[in-house]
Design a protein around this nucleic acid. Structure first.
Lengths: 154, 154
DNA sequence: GTCCTCAGTCCCTTGAGGAGACTTACCGTA
DNA sequence: TACGGTAAGTCTCCTCAAGGGACTGAGGAC
């Protein structure tokens, strides 16, 4: 894992990168979200080394993104499931997926489609302003530092 | 940078991680978005090593996320600005920021506020279904692999 | 007792990250 | 002409993380 820590920056993006921004973490979270819960299933799907997977799962459990849940008493076995915090991180993955569909798909189109259960259609996520409901893009906002923040690096 | 490549996975999340998921990249893009355009400004704000910053900027220019623009002819000097592709990646940063505000802020509250120019209020991004406009959360969708995709790892 | 499953742990090698000195190109000043 | 400053890298060296795959431990089936 990265030697430089981002958690002390006065920035929610940096702090999020600290929690779950290490390159394998979003992919592990994605896999759990899509129904892959066990160690060797994750290892096989991701093509990751056992040592790194062990470390990342331990980290994500420690961060409250995943939790271990027993699925067998005898012999004792466990799997990994998303916490509420982790499921909300998957909302971020929806936004990442939307960008990736637009910019990395090429001629073959998006590799996966998302179906919204409520309306039944294939969909993607768009960002809206929580206040007025209009589409929200990075070009539409100004960033205002909060006063009274300990300004480590920011 | 990570030795394992994610670009061949049939997944837009993995491909996005390949393009801009390396830990420093989102922070570099954030800094450029917030108005920091020059090499030593970026270096100083991020506390990153010169060697790594050079490499990452070159990578992001190659990926079409940033471009170099001359700001002085004599002496020749350039700065880094967002392309359209890069500005849309900042939409992803809005979603990351919303998650970070919720889960990493602690008692001090979010370190930065976003002001939506159109409605003038402090805001954050919420995800909505592009088809029906309802709030969209990861728990509301099913992932459907596209047929005819080259299924590398997926 | 042997072999299997599952979830790690360990060892070794490779390669990336980080600090900071150094380089290059250009310019201003004396 | 010489010197020092600015800006954006490049280079060297050391530290430490990543990755492959063998190995371990616990429990169970036969």
């Amino acid at each position: 894992m990265q030697r430089t820590r981002f958690g002390d920056m006065a920035c929610s993006i940096a702090r999020t990168m600290e929690v779950a921004g290490e390159p394998w973490s979003p992919l592990i979270i994605r896999d759990v979200w899509s129904g892959i819960h066990r160690f060797d299933e994750l290892r096989s799907d991701l093509g990751i080394s056992r040592k790194i997977l062990t470390e990342r799962l331990k980290w994500l459990v420690g961060q409250g993104i995943l939790e271990q849940r027993a699925y067998s008493e005898r012999p004792p076995r466990h799997e990994y499931v998303l916490t509420r915090k982790g499921l909300e991180f998957c909302d971020v993955l929806l936004a990442i997926n939307a960008w990736g569909d637009r910019w990395t798909a090429g001629d073959a189109g998006p590799p996966n489609l998302l179906r919204h259960r409520a309306c039944g259609r294939h969909t993607s996520a768009e960002l809206r302003c929580v206040e007025c409901g209009q589409p929200l893009h990075a070009g539409d906002v100004d960033i205002e530092p909060q006063t009274q923040q300990p300004a480590a690096t920011r």
